[in-house]
């Protein structure tokens, strides 16, 4: 039997969005183990990490589709539906980039040159930090909905996003340093490997870029 009161509530997008960023972060987090193994030349372990990344990326994708299905235009929400869908899209890209970069690396068995290995792993970790901070910010969504996107909670989230921006700036600096370090040794590398190494650095950096865009999207919600 249908009940009016039960049906009047559309399915809330908040919990699913928080769940989605959680999966996206977990996906990015695997890059640490993946690249640690690849630097060590342990391609078997790297492949295992790659499997986990792929599985998580699929999971994020499925959840993304499900959330979209449950956000029909007839929903009345305190924030525009489009903004929530955009947020979902950039969250999903964190997982996508993690999958792309691990795919290219494993596909070519691309060995990070020993001279920049340590610097590169630091760079990867910083990108994961950015994804983690994005997750922390998105996890405030339910509180934001509770307070109607006003008051002390908004300042708290604005602070989290600012921190996220700083982490992203930090990854940009690390990326620039890493590129010049690679430039210094590129003549000693196989030319195609060197080209792909640049590509891998760029793709890894996009994880933090996407995390930063999650922050931008959240900020848009705050300004309503």
């Amino acid at each position: 039997m249908a009940n009016v009161l039960a049906n009047i509530f559309g399915s809330s997008p908040v919990q699913p969005l928080e769940k989605h960023i959680n999966i996206a972060y977990k996906c990015a987090k695997q890059l640490h183990g993946f690249f640690a193994a690849s630097v060590a030349g342990d391609w078997e372990t790297a492949a295992e990490y790659r499997d986990i990344i792929e599985k998580l990326e699929h999971e994020a994708d499925d959840l993304k589709k499900e959330i979209r299905l449950h956000l029909p235009k007839s929903l009345f929400m305190p924030v525009p539906r489009e903004d929530l869908l955009e947020l979902l899209l950039v969250q999903d890209k964190i997982a996508n980039r993690s999958k792309d970069v691990s795919g290219i690396t494993l596909g070519r068995k691309l060995q990070v040159p020993a001279a920049i290995a340590e610097q590169f792993l630091e760079f990867v970790d910083r990108n994961i930090d950015a994804a983690k901070q994005a997750r922390k910010s998105v996890r405030e969504l339910d509180e934001l909905f509770t307070v109607g996107f006003r008051g002390a909670e908004v300042e708290l989230v604005a602070g989290l996003i600012e921190e996220l921006d700083q982490i992203e700036t930090d990854t940009d600096e690390k990326q620039a340093a890493l590129r010049s370090a690679l430039f210094a040794i590129e003549k000693s590398l196989d030319p195609i490997d060197a080209m792909f190494m640049y590509k891998v650095i760029e793709l890894t950096g996009e994880v933090a870029d996407m995390a930063e865009r999650v922050g931008r999207r959240l900020e848009l919600l705050l300004s309503h």
């Binding site: 049906n7 009047i8 559309g10 929903l75 009345f76 305190p78």
Partner: peptide, 15 residues
Amino acid sequence: VGMARGIEAIDLRVV
């Protein structure tokens, strides 16, 4: 309460 931006999603079809 929804008008006061208190509710995450209200299904207007049901209304």
